[in-house]
Amino acid sequence: MNEIKEEAKKLIDRLPDQATWDDIMYQMYVKKKLDVSLKAAEDGEVVSHEEVKRRLLLR
């Protein structure tokens, strides 16, 4: 079975029995966002806090 399907099954199994479709979709959304963010950090595609402040002040 592919890795993504396995991860989805594990995620659902960790939810309480009374979980709704919205709960499932939210958890999958958060998982996807975290995966993308961690990959960006690993690849060095991040901006420092100081750089963000500098950019916001330029507006």
Rank of each mutant, 00 (worst) to 15 (best):
Q18M: 06
V52T: 10
R55Q: 13
K53W: 04
L57F: 05
D43L: 13
D23F: 05
R54A: 15
L57W: 01
R54Q: 14
V46Q: 06
L58R: 05
H49F: 13
Y29Q: 06
R54F: 05
M28R: 05
A41Q: 08
E42T: 05
S37Q: 10
A19C: 05
I4E: 06
M1W: 08
M28S: 03
D43G: 00
E6M: 08
D43M: 12
I4V: 13
K9I: 10
Y29G: 02
W21H: 08
Q27L: 01
E42R: 12
E6I: 09
A19H: 11
I12N: 03
R59E: 12
R14I: 03
L57D: 10
L34W: 07
K32S: 14
E51Y: 03
L56N: 11
E3D: 14
L34F: 08
I12G: 01
V47R: 10
L57K: 14
V46H: 07
K31M: 13
L34G: 02
A8N: 03
V52N: 03
D17R: 12
E42D: 12
R14D: 06
E50P: 02
K9F: 09
A19K: 01
A40H: 09
A41T: 04
V30K: 05
K39T: 09
E3V: 13
T20P: 01
